[in-house]
Nucleic acid binder design. Sequence first.
DNA 1: ATCATAGTCGTCTGCCTGACGATAAACACT
DNA 2: AGTGTTTATCGTCAGGCAGACGACTATGAT
Lengths: 250, 250
Amino acid sequence: MSPYDPSAFPPFAVTVDLVVLTVRRHSLCALAVRRGEAPFQGRWALPGGFVRDDEDLATAAARELEEETGLCAHDPGTPAAAPGNGAHLEQLATYGDPKRDPRMRVVSVAHLALAPDLPAPKAGGDAHSARWAPVETFLEPEDEETGALAFDHAQILADGVERARSKIEYSSLATAFCPTEFTVGELRRVYEAVWGVALDPRNFHRKVTGTPGFLVPTGGTTTRQGGRPAQLFRAGGATLLNPPMLRPEV
Amino acid sequence: MSPYDPSAFPPFAVTVDLVVLTVRRHSLCALAVRRGEAPFQGRWALPGGFVRDDEDLATAAARELEEETGLCAHDPGTPAAAPGNGAHLEQLATYGDPKRDPRMRVVSVAHLALAPDLPAPKAGGDAHSARWAPVETFLEPEDEETGALAFDHAQILADGVERARSKIEYSSLATAFCPTEFTVGELRRVYEAVWGVALDPRNFHRKVTGTPGFLVPTGGTTTRQGGRPAQLFRAGGATLLNPPMLRPEV
DNA sequence: ATCATAGTCGTCTGCCTGACGATAAACACT
DNA sequence: AGTGTTTATCGTCAGGCAGACGACTATGAT
């Protein structure tokens, strides 16, 4: 049936792993699930799973994301989709070191998901439990044995965090961390959490409100952050920021 | 031997495909090989092949690149490696639509290679022949039936070209298209070919010579372009350009 | 000698950013 | 009611960088 000689190429298992990021309490957090089986039993790992036979890679990633978090992924081809009800999802990179899984040859297509703050993590699939934790928890674990992520997931997470950090510079992706309606201050706190820096509120306000297509005022105001009521905005249609938002040195 | 139930996941074939770009005669060119077998027999396709059992993805890509072009890939971890004798190689994206290969389920990890102008294409492996052609030849084929690339390779090429176009904005990657020693004018013609625009020679000269670590003068001069002799440079250690080189609008 | 070609140095203007002062509008106290 | 705190928003100013473009230099070709 297949014109290929099955012995002409080695069979691989293909999985998708997810770097799911959100901003909670002023810090950039990643979703991790506890492994229920060997290897790395009991260790934290990125959510993920096998790609099914009839499934595209993006479809598999969206399915895993929905299973783990209940989030509906935005199709990148649907730019006008409102943030808040769903998450941004994009392919990150593919990891295929022959020894990355001790059991067999597994190639993992990692994806990056950015989501607004969610009420509570929800364990799903074969994971015993799931949690959000600041990315430093996994990238600089105090106890290497128990704190570090399984497999090469620390590297994948680091790559995902770096992608997110650089991509909010030149795109409007930071709005993916915000609910549908948000204030300039909330958006600024997203940048501050992702970059781990403090930004000048006045210059930030000037920059984001002065960039055409970035923010669309909804007319409403809110005072949920305390202080003077702030204007509410939705994400505008623009996806690329030109000139970019500058990340402070050091 | 494997703790996995082989029926628990579908087997995939994993390949690497290469987008190899160079600048020839003022235009951005890609390497294509003619397919010797069905499907798409006789059509042009990107070079590539199966990942071997004990091979990392980057290793497989470097091996295919060497087989097709004789180029030695720079390890990204070796920043000081001189351009000219080798090529820049990086992972691009992974393509896994269930129907992308009519024969079976194939997931392809595409890589992007940037090389200086090479003497002549060299057919290798199972390809009947190989050639360099301007990327527009494949992206906007006059005759869809014969000019278009096989499989989803037109999409992969488009993604690779877009990656190259955006990456030379904020990195010193354009030097990967140049021989070891080059002039400011030659580097400018690389930008002009990749972006398809004309740049002001005076402003370009000011920008690249004023960016610390971008260019290192070798002391020599050349007149191979005609006109007044130009200073020769090597690529400096800097990889990231800050502020970036600005791509003109429209 | 003159021209064409390419490289290199300057100047000027406008835009953007970083630093930071000032004002406005809410809430929490007393 | 007044005072302090917090957050939002508007303005000002100086420095840096990019685009536009003039001027000069050093080769080879005619």
